[in-house]
Design a protein around this nucleic acid. Structure first.
Lengths: 105, 105
DNA sequence: TGATATACTTCGTGTTATGATGTATTACAT
DNA sequence: ATGTAATACATCATAACACGAAGTATATCA
């Protein structure tokens, strides 16, 4: 899949992955695997960015004697998902423009 | 519209703008205005990139005593548009994932 | 005479995805 | 007991990219 197009979808994918219940890095990658591939370095960069943007909060918890960072979506995070939904009309209009057959005008 | 998402669409928009007939910078911006806004600096960067990638060719022609650079799509450029069309299934699957309501599982 | 539209160019900057690399623990097979 | 794969997170350097700002130059119209 085109790298550039991917860029616009990564953030919302990560937010979507935690919108129903808190999750942690490794789990998020596995959850998203069927839809979009992302490496660990990419994910943690995104998580840090989303944290700075206050779209999610972090909590460290112990699991089997090992530390895990659980990510929790905030209201701003949910608002970002809503924006994405709204933006979709624009995207579809662009899609139709790009793929439309030449009209004999 | 989200900058990152835009990135993945700009190249194909520009290619789509010249797919029916050759066009030049200023005209391309006007043509795309209803769908996506892009500045001159952005456009010319994209055009140069697409030329390097051999997705279009350039020809300089005089118009009213002023030089214009006309851009012409190549077979590779058309192939890029076809790829975009094919990628759309993936994009739609991501869209559905991101926007789907939580299922009561 | 001045403003606006047309037309293209260059530069610097900030954002971003990613591979490479590192650290450390758990689980399972040999 | 030893090795290997999976789990889990972190940092760094790099290259790609969009864009505002600024510049050059001509045509058009008030």
């Amino acid at each position: 899949m085109d790298i550039q197009l991917k860029r616009g979808l990564l953030d919302v994918c990560v937010l979507a992955a935690i919108k129903n219940e808190d999750s942690y890095g490794y789990q998020i990658i596995k959850e998203l695997k069927p839809y979009i591939k992302l490496s660990e370095s990419t994910l943690y960069t995104i998580l840090k960015r989303l944290e700075t943007a206050e779209m999610l909060t972090v909590r460290t918890a112990e699991h089997n004697g090992r530390l895990r960072k659980y990510y929790h979506i905030t209201e701003s995070g949910r608002a970002r998902l809503e924006d994405f939904r709204r933006e979709w009309d624009e995207i579809m209009s662009i899609y139709r423009y790009v793929t439309k057959e030449e009209n004999n005008e």
